[in-house]
Structure formats: C-alpha cells, structure tokens
C-alpha cells in the first residue's frame, strides 16, 4: 500500500489532484482537464508506460463527461486510473496521441465515435466501427436504444414483437 500512497501524494502535490487507493495496486486520481496531459507525461516518465484503456463515462445529471485513462506500470505494478471531467456541451480535450502514438490514437478514435468527444491534436478521428451512421453518438446516455430500436425495427402490430413494448 505504501507505493500506492506515494503516487497519490506525488500527484496531489504537483497538480492538486484528489484521489483514493481502492485496494492493493489500484489508485484512482482526479485531476483538472487542463493538467491531465502533464500528469500523464509525469506518470509515463515514472514508469507507467502501458496505456491499458481510455474510457468515457457520461454523467448526464451533472452535464459532464468523465474521461478516464488507465495506466499500468510494469515496474511498480500499480494501476493508476486518472480521471478528469469536461463539460458535456463543450466536449473537447487535448489528445495524448503524441505520447503514445497508435495506441492512444485508436482509443481516442473509438471514444470520439461512441461519445462524440473531440480530441484536439488527434488527426485520425474517422469512424471506426460504424458505416453511414447519422444518429447521435450512440453511447451517450440521452440516446435511448430501446426507444430507437422499437421505432426502427419492431412494430406493435406484430404479435411476436409485442413483448418488446412492455
């Protein structure tokens, strides 16, 4: 637990971050959106060189997107989850593709497609999974899949499909 607290303290001092140690080898840290790239660079120089994933959580009630970076260190064997919040109606954040290259670029490309988050500095944000998709970014909370599917695929008149409307 000592090394986990050390990482947390270091980021707290440098960036005024908040966070907690969930259990052995798991640290969750929240930083401001402007400082996130600096914090990632610092962590990378400390040995957190495996970018496991980039994820977005849509906190629709707060009107915010939470962007999470999951970094693993092969040396100290700790997983740091770096979180930052950005406004939902102005979803722009700096890209980290210049630090990690293809790895980060692909993760950001996916998140751009599924959540509509803009990553500044990533030149490769073309759709990854979907072809000719003209709806809203599909993974946002305000896009109700069940309502969409009922309207698009099923009909109330079909007896087989009526149970989908319950």
């Amino acid at each position: 637990m000592k090394r986990e607290i050390e990482v947390l303290q270091c980021l707290k001092e440098k960036f005024g971050a908040e966070g907690y140690v969930r259990r052995d080898r798991r640290v969750f840290i929240t930083v401001d959106a402007e400082k996130v790239k600096e914090a990632i660079l610092l962590l990378k120089n400390k040995g957190y060189e495996h970018l496991s994933a980039i994820s977005v959580t849509d906190w629709i009630k707060d009107g915010e997107f939470e962007i999470t970076y999951h970094l693993w260190s092969y040396e100290s064997k700790i997983l740091v989850t770096l979180k930052t919040r950005i406004k939902r109606d102005k979803a722009i954040i700096e890209s980290i593709s210049d630090i990690w290259g293809g790895n980060a670029r692909t993760h950001e490309r996916e998140m751009h497609e599924l959540f509509g988050v803009e990553f500044l500095g990533n030149d490769d944000l073309v759709p990854l999974f979907l072809e000719d998709w003209d709806g809203p970014p599909p993974f946002r909370k305000d896009f109700d899949w069940r309502a969409y599917v009922r309207e698009k695929f099923y009909s109330m008149d079909n007896e087989r499909e009526r149970s989908y409307y319950d």
């Binding site: 599909p138 899949w145 599917v149």
Partner: peptide, 8 residues
C-alpha cells in the same frame, strides 16, 4: 434485440 447496430 435492443442493440442499435444489428439487424433483427
């Protein structure tokens, strides 16, 4: 059945 991307 409720996936937006698969045909039914």
């Amino acid at each position: 059945w409720d996936s937006y991307n698969t045909i039914k």
